[in-house]
C-alpha cells in the first residue's frame, strides 16, 4: 500500500486543520501505517478510495476517523518510568507539604490516548500516597479524540496492553480480569475526569494546576503552536507547579519561563521565579 502525493496532501491538510498536527513530507509511511486498520474498518480497498469517499461525503464521519487514526499514539503503562519516579520521590512529597493546609491537588494529563498514561499516574498516586483519597483531588485527563476518551472511560485493555509496562502487583490490585480483557477498577476510573480538549483550539475552563502531564504531544505541533500551548500551560500552572514533557521534548527556544529540573530523565519543568500567570483562577484560557 502506497500513498500518492495528492492523497498525502489531502490527509495532511485535513489533519492540520482539525488538530494543528503537522505531517511534513517524509511522513507518508506514518499515514500508510495508520490508515491500514481504518481501511479494513471502512471496507475501503485503498487510501485513494478513502480520500475519494471523504471528498464525496465532506460532512461524513470518515474525516473524524482519519483524524483520530492520525492523532492517536501508541503508548504503554508507566512509559519511560523516570517521570513516575520523579513524581513519587520529589514532586508529590513536595506538593503534599505545600498543600497541607488546603488538602487540595489539581492535576491534568493532557494527552490521554488510550488511557495508559492517566491511569498510570492514578495508580502511582494511590499506591504511594493513599492519604490522597481523603484530599480533594481534581484529576482531569484529556484527549482530542472522543473515540479514545470513550475507550479511556471504559478502561478495558487487552492482555498485550497490560503486559506492556504495567507491574504485575498493580495489575492484580487495580484491574478486574474479564475473559480475554482486563478492566481497570471503578475506584480508579471514577477518580479521573476525562474531557475532550483540542490543545490547538480553545481550551475549556480548567482550574490552576499543580501538575500538568503533557508528554509526547508537543512533538506533533509546529514551533508557533508549541509556543502557544506552552504559553497557555504557563497561565494555568500554579507558580510552584510542575510540568512534565516527553523525553524528546523541550521548552528551550520556545518558552523561557520554564526551567528544566535536574531529576534524572524525567522531563520535569517548573516556572522560573516571577514567570507565573498573575491571576489566581482564570475563567478560561
Amino acid at each position: 500500500m502506497t500513498i500518492s502525493p495528492g492523497d498525502f496532501d489531502y490527509i495532511s491538510k485535513l489533519v492540520v486543520e482539525r488538530s494543528a498536527i503537522v505531517l511534513e513530507p517524509g511522513k507518508e509511511y506514518l499515514v500508510e501505517s495508520r490508515m491500514r486498520s481504518l481501511l479494513q474498518e471502512t471496507h475501503c480497498p485503498s487510501i485513494r478510495e478513502l480520500v475519494q469517499k471523504m471528498v464525496r461525503e465532506p460532512n461524513g464521519d470518515l474525516k473524524n476517523k482519519v483524524v483520530d487514526a492520525m492523532t492517536t499514539n501508541e503508548t504503554s503503562f508507566f512509559r519511560d518510568l523516570h517521570p513516575f519516579e520523579a513524581m513519587k520521590n520529589v514532586v508529590i512529597p513536595d506538593l503534599l507539604k505545600k498543600r497541607e493546609s488546603t488538602r487540595q491537588l489539581n492535576l491534568w494529563c493532557g494527552a490521554s490516548s488510550r488511557g495508559q498514561e492517566p491511569y498510570s499516574v492514578a495508580m502511582m498516586l494511590l499506591e504511594n500516597f493513599p492519604q490522597l483519597t481523603t484530599w480533594k483531588v481534581h484529576y482531569v485527563a484529556s484527549d482530542i479524540s472522543e473515540k479514545m476518551l470513550a475507550r479511556c472511560r471504559e478502561g478495558i485493555y487487552s492482555q498485550l496492553e497490560v503486559n506492556r509496562g504495567l507491574p504485575a502487583p498493580l495489575l492484580v490490585k487495580y484491574f478486574d480480569h474479564r475473559a480475554t480483557k482486563w478492566q481497570i477498577k471503578d475506584n480508579i476510573r471514577k477518580w479521573v475526569d476525562f474531557k475532550q480538549i483540542n490543545l490547538a483550539s480553545h481550551w475549556p475552563h480548567l482550574p490552576r494546576m499543580d501538575i500538568v502531564f503533557m508528554r509526547n504531544v508537543l512533538i506533533y505541533f509546529d514551533p508557533p503552536m508549541k509556543k502557544i500551548i506552552l504559553g497557555k500551560i504557563r497561565q494555568i500552572l500554579k507558580p510552584d507547579g510542575y510540568l512534565f514533557l516527553g523525553a524528546a521534548e523541550t521548552t528551550l527556544n520556545l518558552d523561557d519561563a520554564f526551567q528544566r529540573m535536574d531529576i534524572k530523565q524525567s522531563g520535569c519543568y517548573r516556572l522560573r521565579e516571577g514567570q507565573a500567570h498573575p491571576s489566581r483562577e482564570p475563567a478560561s484560557v
Binding site: S76, N163, G165, A168
Partner: peptide
Amino acid sequence: GANEYVMKPFNRDVIEKKIAL
C-alpha cells in the same frame, strides 16, 4: 516470590519493559 509476570503471547517490547521495571 516471583517479581514480575508476563502473560503469553508477548513481544520484545513487553519483555524489555518488564526487565526495566
